[in-house]
Design a protein around this nucleic acid. Structure first.
Lengths: 183, 183
DNA sequence: AACTCGGGAGAACGACCGTTCTCCATGGTC
DNA sequence: GACCATGGAGAACGGTCGTTCTCCCGAGTT
């Protein structure tokens, strides 16, 4: 197993464990036994647990935004593309191992103690906000709408994480539809 | 110092520390030294750390909802009362030691490992949702609106916690105003 | 004055965890 | 075959933390 493969396996295990059980309740030994990557190799690839957490959040950020964009790109109509964001949320919430937003959870867990993790969470949220702002602008809608839709999406994520229901996505989408018509 | 006073002091320290630095990075010894309540007494009052966390969340829940209701009760107009929720959020976000929503943070930290804490978070959110639903009903507005306003409020709380800005409250309030007019 | 008892200070215990180290096997290279 | 680098398994180390225990003090009681 070469270095790149070991890295992927380690990140796969880290994502599964950190996302599923929280960062602090998962030990490096759990990552080792789940990934099959030895502790020695793990520490060569990621010199500390905090760096592994960062790498996990980074890879997940890329993938999450790719999946969102892929979903939005199924549509051409600019307003429909805005609403497609909420369709994607609903799909995400319905995944069997959905446990809320990884970044919101990580911020609750580590935001107060790890500035690096906190910064990565802010970067992810900012990127999502910027993407939403672009969709809104492409639809010729006013800038202020983006911030409002962003809050609806965040509210849906938190609520879905706490209640384990998909329904917040649909409610957020309704509200988004009303806001689109109101402005 | 009698038992009731020790309990209050312990909860004061627990709230300050758990809310400010997160539950897991605060030891029982920190609670002891901050509160001045000895470890022995602490364990008499709260037989485990988890029970102390629950008691902290419970007392904070009561106070938080009281403060919200007090703010709303400054107004008589039913629609104004609904919007006053967002005024209260803004006031809260501006407090100097604001670190986001205590329940969202606790859920991110302990939701996956402590069913008791997770249940308490759900109870708090449900109570907030029910309060909002009552304000909406009292204003003669449709039920569906309550869920939408709830998501805006939750989105504002998460975002304010992550960015440390008060502005999400104002944006949520704008969106809420539009939704009130739209239905 | 002796006794009791709740409580304080802090040591002690046991478990866990992030990180490093030891020892050994393996496979490529000369 | 000798040598070396690489990496695996897992022990070891140092620190932290939740929880309990020991020892002692002081106040109230008889």
């Amino acid at each position: 197993m070469d270095s790149a493969a070991a890295r992927e396996r380690a990140l796969d295990a880290a994502e599964e464990l950190f996302y599923g059980r929280g960062v602090q309740s998962v030990g490096m030994d759990d990552v080792r036994s789940t990934s099959g990557v030895s502790l020695k190799r793990l520490y060569q690839l990621f010199p500390s647990k905090e760096l592994l957490v960062e790498a996990y959040l980074e890879r997940r950020d890329t993938r999450w935004r790719e999946q969102l964009a892929a979903h939005v790109d199924r549509h051409e109509d600019p307003r429909r593309r805005v609403l497609a964001v909420f369709d994607r949320l609903e799909e995400w919430f319905a995944e069997p191992d959905f446990r809320g937003c990884a970044w919101i959870n990580a911020h609750g867990e580590l935001g107060a103690t790890s500035p690096r993790v906190a910064a990565r969470v802010r970067a992810h949220k900012q990127a999502f906000h910027a993407y939403l702002a672009r969709l809104v602008a492409d639809a010729g809608l006013p800038d202020t709408l983006a911030g409002q839709l962003y809050l609806l999406a965040e509210g849906a994520m938190v609520t879905a994480g706490i209640t384990r229901a998909t329904e917040p996505a649909a409610r957020a989408r309704e509200a988004a539809g009303l806001l689109l018509r109101a402005v």
